[in-house]
Nucleic acid binder design. Structure first.
Lengths: 213, 213, 213, 213
DNA sequence: TATGAATGAGGTTTCATTCAT
DNA sequence: GATGAATGAAACCTCATTCAT
């Protein structure tokens, strides 16, 4: 049976790419469910439906697979986030912050445990640490660009921009993370609301004052 | 008399207690430097200057040692923190928040990596998760008692107390943690200042309004 | 597809089967020579000419290997023994008993120590006990079918068939076993002859009486 | 408080002997319950209520303890059995056999597992094997003396005395053992009856013939 | 490329025995 | 004598990785 060519070119993955994808998927699933150290390469291969040998044909070792997964995960993350600055001044700032937080929260639905695993492994692995640093810098640059715009427009209350960027980044990231991982019953909407409030009050001059002026 | 092996032998005598302390110290050091999975029992024993057999006489296994270290660490933490409520209404609230953050930061100087390790291991280990939950609840109770006092005194701006407690806890904890672990050059004083500002603006009605009134 | 680890990997391919056979052979040899507790897994692997890892790929643990050896041994045993009943009434009964004993003795030449080891391990291991019970029942059923035939033909002297079955089984089994293990010089032919006499006199009505009738 | 000397001298064991007895008792209990290899010296010491150090003060090693236990057990056995020959010719022979079997069965109530353990350990331990051989010889001598008496009195049917002795010893010993260890419901009285019948019919000329004469 | 059996270093844990007190 | 903490050789078992097919 010859391959049925359809009129529209279907960009099928080559067999090889497919295999690699299967391993990535299986790795993500297992690292996520059981953690890096609790998952072994035979298991990953089996879950991917390939032989261990193939695993090692595509990935130098287990760590390399993990790093590739991290990369995929972060690319996905930045694809979501990278809302470049618009020139709007009159835009509702609270809404912007809120949207930013929401999209971060969205991200964490993809593979929240990877984030955790990553931070853990970073502390004994320089390669992973380097990747994280790189991404942190990208995130900080993004936040900074927001703050600078607001500063230019006279809305910003904070003085120490660099520190504010850090604080913003960590606070959002970790509260979202806690939200996803808390065993306790937590209401997501309420947490995001309060978080938004906190950041707005911290960053911006109070609306009331303006109005009263 | 049946053997009745408890998870951990609990020594009264001095020599024995000393050995246990040595193992605890060595474990703390190594887990901290290289992480749980990168440290093995022989190594711990050697670092403690005892035979492996002694390790297993005092701790059922590596995990049990880790849990005991966590407990020691947390007890220390609570010894620092538990500043009971005073009845003062006129006290400087910013100063109180600042002090709270500072003491938390202090704590992290003891064994910051243990905290990280802990959260990591929790995600595949129910025993460790249980301990963390317990302590989180204690911390939340403490924060809540502060907020309720401020609420009673009419200083509090937030409505959703429960969520605010969570937000407060996570935000302080994680920013301090990030502070200690950031590879980048970070100025501790500045971070703590901004963090304090953020939390005050979030929690309290603005002073200016009062003054203007 | 979940891992679904069966206790023992069941190989189809030739190389793999060969390896398993080698391990079984080495295990049989060593358990036989030195006993279960005096033999360790590294040793077995080395004797089989494979790595320890392979040992554990094929057998969950040492006990599992032992159980498989038992099974092989017993299958062999039953292949020898299962002489189904014929309808002959006039057949020499002494000759039948003699043949039965001889074939049991034959069996014990295969791996006599395994039998001993087995009984020993049974007393602390339920799995092994279960296997032994199963085989005992099979053996008892076989003996019973002989006795019932002789009873029907009017040759049987004993009344309490169930007890006789037990007595017969144990007596043959253990005397053969003792024969094989006695350090003293024992003449096999003489023991088997006396054993045959004893069982015939116990089971059957005396020929002389018949003749005199 | 000075020791209260009673009028009658109470032959109290010295403290030292008492300790040794405790270890022997604990060893017997544990070897019996869990087997030699499944019992460790610390456990025995604890069960005996003494320190491990004391264990090794009284017994060179674990095996030595086992051998001492064996000896105690066998002495007890021979104290029961050694019914010296009487000169009686008219005594009921079946009753004698029956009594012999019964007393053997009695013995097995003391520490039946020791017997099993013993045979097992013998096969890798020469010292234990030597002891067993010694006792077997004693038992055989005893049985032989019975048979010779019956032979002299014209009651014996068997010709091959040496082999008969062996057969008798093994058959009684192992059937009693099986009786004690069978997991199945077995009626002790019935087994002992049949066993007695079997041995009588094997050994003795039939009564009926005599009577009819 | 794909396969999966085979490898063996290395980690975990036990326990018979010693020895300082 | 008694104690029991300490020892460390040796057993058990896992799993990242290789390599012959």
């Amino acid at each position: 049976m010859p391959p049925k060519r359809s009129a529209t070119r279907e960009p099928r993955q080559t067999r090889s790419m497919q295999t690699k994808q299967q391993i990535l998927a299986a790795g993500t699933k297992l690292f996520t469910e059981k953690g890096f150290h609790q998952t072994n390469s035979n298991e990953i291969a089996k879950a991917a439906g390939v032989a261990v040998g193939s695993f090692y044909a595509y990935f130098k070792d287990k760590k390399t697979l993990f790093i590739e997964i991290m990369k995929v995960h972060y690319e996905e993350q930045f694809r979501f986030i990278e809302l470049p600055e618009e020139n709007l001044a009159g835009v509702d700032r609270r809404a912007m912050i809120h949207r930013l937080i929401k999209s971060l929260a969205e991200l964490h639905n993809i593979a929240p445990e990877i984030h955790q695993e990553q931070y853990y492994l970073a502390h004994t692995d320089a390669d992973i640490q380097a990747l994280i640093d790189e991404w942190d810098q990208a995130a900080h640059a993004l936040i900074l660009s927001y703050l600078q715009r607001w500063l230019a427009d006279g809305y910003l209350r904070v003085k120490d921009l660099d520190t504010a960027v850090r604080l913003f980044g960590t606070t959002v990231e970790e509260n979202i993370h806690a939200l996803k991982f808390s065993k306790a019953e937590v209401n997501e909407t309420r947490v995001i609301n309060e978080l938004t409030d906190m950041l707005c009050r911290y960053l911006f001059v109070e609306e009331k004052n303006k109005k009263s002026a």
